[in-house]
Amino acid sequence: MKDLSDDIIKSIEERAVKPVLHWQYVSKKILFWIGTSLLVSLGALALALAIYLVQSIDWNMYSFLGYGSLYSFVMSAFPYIYILLLIAFLVLAYYFYRQTPKGHKINISVLATILIIFGLSVAFLFHILGVNREAYFQLARMPFYHQMMFTKEGEWSQPDKGLLWGEVSNVSKNNFSLRDANGKDWNVSYDNNTSFDKNIYDVQGQDVKIIGQEKSTNDFQAKQVRQWDGVMNCNGHRNMMMNRNGMMENSGMMGGRGMMNWR
């Protein structure tokens, strides 16, 4: 081949080629590191949300919802979307990490293992800190969320299947009023056979979940009345539950706000 050195230098000078500035490369490397960290964190959040969702659902209610077995209920209510999101974010994090200066040196299996362990650790941390509860609270306030996912709120908003959730008001001897998440008012009847985990007069103004039977458009017969243990009340506010010592307990990280009507 002929000596190209003079042609190359001439070409560099004629085209006024300049070396790309060092800070631009540094910025690019930092961006890939930030991207990798962000994607792992998002994957971890998806997993933490899945954990919260699994934890919050009342799994023993499957027979009310028409599932023949717990297994078929688990298969139906399993948070596939979050698991898919976890996988998608980790795969993206893998490709981002590969773009870092030494990212190509680690073997695929080693890098995948590191990302999975790191993702699981961050997910566990999010769970401990309650980040997943807060994220769930924000998501649960969006109307489409309960249509996309099987949620505790959705589970207990099926009066036709005997599961009702709402805020108690006007308690009298044999019945009380209840307003559900759609703002619909119910007249809930109870009798001596109805079981309560707290005195019904004590939960006035609070949310409860009820197992029973829909009698007519606005009438519901209660068999069991339990304190609502979800992160969000049916009015879209944060659920402040009474703990064992009678103290108010915030089930989320921050104070409540806003109204909802998500169905």
Binding site: M1, K2, L4, D7, I8, S11, I12, R15, V17, K18, P19, V20, L21, H22, Q24, Y25, P101
Partner: peptide, 20 residues
């Protein structure tokens, strides 16, 4: 290939600040 060699070295010149 000579044209490619030229382009390769121009790229090397342009990216020299990326080298460690």
């Amino acid at each position: 290939v000579e044209d490619m060699v030229q382009e390769v070295f121009i790229k090397v010149y342009r990216s020299m600040n990326d080298f460690e």
